Amino acid sequence: MAETTSPIEIAVIVNDEAWPENLEARAEEAVRAALALAKPKVKGAAELSILLTNDEEQHELNRQWRGKDSSTNVLSFPQIEPFGPVVGILGDITLARETLIREAEEQGVSFEAHFTHLVVHGFLHILGYDHLTDEEAAEMEGLETRILATLGVEDPYAD
Rank of each mutant, 00 (worst) to 15 (best):
A33D: 11
I8E: 09
I93G: 10
I126F: 03
L52H: 12
T4D: 07
T53A: 05
K41C: 01
A38E: 05
S6A: 10
V87R: 13
V14W: 01
E57A: 13
E24A: 12
G142K: 03
E106G: 02
T150L: 01
G108Q: 03
A27C: 07
L61S: 12
E144L: 02
Y129D: 09
N73G: 12
E60C: 01
V86Y: 01
V109R: 13
I101R: 09
V74D: 04
L48R: 11
K41R: 11
L132Q: 15
E136H: 13
M1Y: 06
E98D: 13
A25K: 12
E154D: 10
P156W: 00
E57S: 10
T5M: 02
F77D: 13
E105R: 10
E106K: 09
I126Q: 08
K39L: 01
D155W: 00
E60W: 06
G91R: 06
K41V: 07
A30P: 15
L148N: 11
E21D: 14
E56Y: 10
V120D: 11
A149M: 01
V153Y: 04
D69I: 02
E81P: 06
F83N: 11
A33F: 07
V42D: 09
N73Q: 06
D92M: 05
F115T: 11
P20K: 01
L52K: 13
A138S: 10
N54E: 11
E112G: 02
T94H: 10
V31W: 03
L61Y: 12
A18D: 14
V153L: 02
L148P: 14
L52G: 13
I8R: 07
E28L: 01
L118E: 15
G128Q: 07
L37E: 03
E136Y: 03
K39P: 06
